[in-house]
């Protein structure tokens, strides 16, 4: 696997406050990498360092083998990005905005502008002034801009912000296609886990400036499955708990007037039922409670996802 972006022990402080604390990760070609964290975690800050908005206090960033500091223009030539919301020149149309952006790159011709606009479905209204656009439309033009010069590394900060469900799906498809068919390295930040689930190959979790873990989506799914639980509906809650052996008691995660939650997988349902029925405890029903990705993350990070 080819590394497209390498972030190496990067730190950043605003004043005395450390915003990014010794973060290292790699972004490979052909993958969609999710950058996940709650509000204020430092996602945007990290992305702004990669895209040249902020200086890097400590550490190194390398893009396509070019050093971000000493070979800035070469390094940045392969980056396409949307940072927070895309802000366009309000008095100019989408086409004009793209033309201006094209002037700052080598090898972007008019056809490519048209192509990028079609890719995001904005070709019909591309000649209107962008101040008349809705947030989602701006987001689309922003994406067209980010894709304009066929970047090898695409970095999007909360790109689904403002998009309608159809737009979100389209975006997902575009990103997946870019990564899997055109070998673009895609990095997407978000605080919504469900979104990540649908498009990312790997996810890095950041909280209060620290990168807590990097996992593949497969690993996460396993954890999730491993950690789903079963709910036994029974009127005899007290009795039921008393009748369980210590081994089973450890698996109880919650109890209420008419149910008990047990962290067991489906294969173990029979075993527990046998124990309870032997004791003449009535069982009215069994429900499987799917663990969410959130829970999986909470587990990975030991409940470390806190908002500052």
């Amino acid at each position: 696997m080819e590394v497209a972006l390498r972030v190496n022990h990067v730190s950043k402080s605003f004043g005395k406050k450390k915003i990014i604390d010794d973060v290292s990760f790699e972004l490979n070609r052909g993958e969609v990498f999710g950058f996940l964290g709650p509000n204020g975690a430092g996602k945007t800050t990290m992305i702004k360092m990669i895209t040249g908005f902020l200086s890097v206090d400590n550490g190194k960033i390398e893009i396509n083998g070019f050093d971000h500091h000493s070979q800035y223009e070469k390094a940045m030539a392969s980056i396409g990005a949307i940072v927070e919301n895309p802000e366009l020149y309000r008095d100019l149309s989408a086409v004009e905005n793209l033309k201006m952006y094209a002037r700052l790159h080598d090898n972007v011709d008019h056809n490519r502008i048209q192509e990028a606009l079609e890719m995001v479905g904005m070709q019909d209204r591309a000649r209107e002034k962008t101040k008349k656009y809705s947030l989602g439309m701006k987001q689309r033009v922003g994406l067209a801009m980010a894709l304009l010069h066929r970047p090898q590394v695409l970095i999007l900060d909360e790109p689904t912000n403002g998009l309608d469900p159809a737009g979100i799906r389209e975006l997902r498809d575009i990103l997946k296609k870019l990564a899997h068919e055109e070998q673009v390295a895609v990095m997407v930040s978000s605080h919504q886990l469900s979104e990540m689930q649908l498009m990312c190959d790997r996810v890095g979790v950041i909280s209060t400036g620290r990168l807590l873990s990097v996992n593949t989506m497969k690993e996460l799914t396993l954890i999730k499955e491993h950690e789903s639980s079963q709910r036994l509906l029974t009127p005899d809650v007290e009795k039921a708990i008393l009748s369980l052996s210590d081994e089973w008691k450890d698996k109880v995660t919650a109890q209420a007037e008419d149910y008990i939650d047990l962290q067991i997988n489906k294969a173990q349902i029979n075993d527990i039922l046998r124990v309870l029925l032997d004791q003449d405890i009535r069982v009215f029903g069994i429900q499987t409670i799917e663990s969410t990705l959130e829970d999986a993350f909470l587990n990975i990070t030991g409940g470390g996802l806190k908002i500052e």
């Binding site: 800035y72 070469k74 940072v83 366009l88 309000r90 700052l104 790159h105």
Partner: peptide, 14 residues
């Protein structure tokens, strides 16, 4: 203040 500077910053221009 409008944020349009982003276009310039993201571009590969020193």
């Amino acid at each position: 203040s409008s944020g349009s500077i982003k276009m310039l910053i993201v571009a590969p221009v020193r």
